[in-house]
Amino acid sequence: MKILVCISKVPDTTSKIAFTDGNSKFDTNGVQFIINPYDEWYALVRALELKEANGGSVTVINVGLADNDPTIRKALAIGADDAVRVNLDPKDAMDAAQQIADYASANGYELVLCGKETIDYNGSQMGGMIAAILNQEFISNATKLDMNGNTATIERDIQGGTEVLELNIPFVVSAAKGMAEARIPNMRGIMAARTKPLTVVEPSASFNATEVLTYELPPAKGSCKMISADNPAELLDLLRNEAKIL
């Protein structure tokens, strides 16, 4: 089975969030970038496990400029066979989804995986958009994915619970916690990643259905009101009479 895993480059989870240029741009100064954890820990690792069990190939795809290459190489070090970068700074999720869908359809991928959301834009848009463009099913927030021939058994989170379903390839799935365990690349993987193919393809037409105008930080919290450990009842009293939430 030919598997395509979408990876996004995001600021490390400990990054200080700040903005520049009149709050219109994320301040990358001193920020370390990583593969979006949902893409890496769950989507990519599960794709590799499926390949190890059933054969096939795993390609990672990213829509971005050349400064994304070190992040993409990390996915190769974890075990992807090859990588593709669509050479475009995407305007929004729809713009990136169109590029990925075009590549997936031109190259006959049977399963497309991505994380349930990125930790920077928190869109939860990519998987659904790719599926809709390809006229395939989209399985969101999946926590288990098993393949038996061309049929997948998937567990996904739904409103108020979970559901187990069956579906034939091709389809698109977004991965959530539970689908796999994160892998740390070993030295052999890191060495091999240097020579694995990272193909750069030029984008199809790009458009901006949406655009971020400005960012803002939430107002700073006022000071924390401390309550004595000897009298926790005071806390309940404050929650009832001051905060009015009990």
Binding site: P11, I17, F19, I119, D120, Y121, N122, N208, A209, T210, E211, V212, L213, T214, Y215, E216, L217, P218
Partner: peptide, 13 residues
């Protein structure tokens, strides 16, 4: 955005 650490003002075109 940024997992609740900030907000973005997004224009729909």
């Amino acid at each position: 955005v940024f997992s609740g650490k900030a907000y973005a003002h997004v224009k729909i075109n």
